[in-house]
Design a protein around this nucleic acid. Structure first.
Lengths: 148, 148
DNA sequence: TATAGATTAGGAATGATTATCAAGAAAGGG
DNA sequence: CCCTTTCTTGATAATCATTCCTAATCTATA
């Protein structure tokens, strides 16, 4: 039920306007598994929307997040990352190099509570923080016991 | 086992130095449930450490995060928030006003896998995004169906 | 106490994100 | 289909959290 049509529908319902920018931004994000940053998306969109402004992109992304269409999260690298995948899944984030990978190994309950503590819940986010294989190897040569 | 003594111990083990700044920063954060930002902490520390530099605070916080002593996360308000509570718990984050509350209602497994997908896991983070009671009320007057 | 190396303070620099506002589209009613 | 209203966009300036840089200071160790 989440096609570009449904998004347009939800936009109109809320009094928002369906513009080519919004549709293309959403289209560029939909199905993406790479957790892109705003700049990643900007570079990707530039060819098909040469006049696009960064401000417009940020604005549209913030709206998508606030409407519960897209999730944003912090990997510790100074960039905000966006993820259109709202199905239950966890991410692995490296504390050292900030690499991000989806963790499909982690079991998930696929029912999201409608409400918790008075909050109306729309999305859920789960991250596991640690050291990626490469950084583990790099840290192994360190005297300390950071990585057992 | 997590006193200020234990932290000093771990610092020394890794070849790091135990400084009053680090101890006070960690002390100001320990036991805090308010998910403070760097600026919150700076204001709190200034009285007891007048010469403290923001750069030092940021540096210390980044170290604490990288060492797995403290968790950082993004509430969407343009600030990084820090949480010293590494026990399994979820947070509720408002997509509109960015209020953050611990969600003790959400059941947790209290065993953290040592490793997932090659990553050495140190911490876990779980957030539920939606609208807080106040924002739900505010949005109820909106024509759209954002909050059913 | 002397030395080596890590850490800090301070301020300048960086750079991602937002604000501003005039110009340009969409929605909706006639 | 035209008009009006309202929302959205683009361009650039502004913001402001965070990081960088360097000399001075402190910790650990002998």
């Amino acid at each position: 039920m989440q096609g570009i049509e449904a998004l347009a529908q939800r936009l109109r319902t809320q009094g928002g306007k369906v513009t080519s920018q919004r549709m293309l931004i959403w289209g560029a994000l939909a199905g993406d598994q790479s957790h892109p940053s705003a700049e990643d998306l900007f570079a990707r969109l530039k060819p098909m929307l040469p006049g696009l402004s960064l401000a417009t992109l940020y604005h549209a992304l913030n709206e998508l997040v606030e409407w519960g269409e897209v999730r944003r999260f912090d990997a510790g690298d100074g960039h905000i990352h966006y993820d259109p995948d709202l199905t239950p899944h966890a991410e692995l984030v490296c504390l050292r190099c900030h690499a991000i990978v989806d963790a499909h190994e982690v079991p998930q309950v696929d029912t999201l509570p409608r409400e918790i503590g008075g909050y109306r819940i729309l999305m859920r986010s789960e991250q596991y923080y640690g050291y990626c294989p490469a950084c583990r190897a790099a840290l192994a040569h360190t005297p300390g016991a950071l990585v057992q």
